[in-house]
């Protein structure tokens, strides 16, 4: 079964393109959330393996706390995707890392593969160069 991915992103165009890119790669997209409450509703309703989380959402810079909660309390693998990776420079507990935006399809593919490998506990040789991995 392919991995179930939740996109948390307040820019509709960016979310839409990300969704198509993930579908092209054969993943399931569980839903799109533009703010933290919607994201939490979605994870309550459905099983989610990986969440791609933007930091600035339509309800403010709520992405960091949301990512921490999803990772630490809900057992979801979290990958931040933001235009401002400096905001999570010191890392966020429970999250894999951050992929700076804008990015390309190949970087998304390798970052998502890497995050899912980590989730399954599979050995990872090295992280994709564009992904900044948290310690």
């Amino acid at each position: 079964m392919s991995a179930r991915i939740l996109i948390i992103e307040d820019e509709a165009l960016v979310a839409m393109e990300l969704k198509f890119a993930l579908l092209d790669l054969g993943y399931q997209v569980v839903g799109l959330a533009a703010d933290a409450p919607t994201a939490l509703d979605l994870v309550r309703e459905s099983e989610v393996d990986l969440a791609l989380v933007d930091i600035h959402l339509s309800d403010g810079p709520t992405g960091i706390e949301l990512g921490r909660e999803l990772g630490q309390e809900r057992g979801i693998t979290v990958l931040f995707m933001t235009a401002n990776p400096g905001m999570v420079r010191d890392g966020v507990a429970g999250a894999v890392g951050v992929l700076p935006k804008p990015t390309d399809d190949y970087a998304i593919q390798s970052a998502v593969e890497y995050a899912l490998q980590r989730r399954k506990g599979e050995p990872t040789l090295y992280a994709p160069p564009e992904l900044q991995v948290f310690n």
């Binding site: 820019e11 165009l13 960016v14 839409m16 393109e17 600035h56 235009a83 401002n84 804008p102």
Partner: peptide, 18 residues
């Protein structure tokens, strides 16, 4: 302002792809 500038690049990039 910085956030918005960076975001605009992301939106434009997504728009091209879409």
């Amino acid at each position: 302002l910085s956030h918005r500038i960076k975001n605009i690049f992301a939106v434009v990039s997504a728009l091209v792809a879409l």
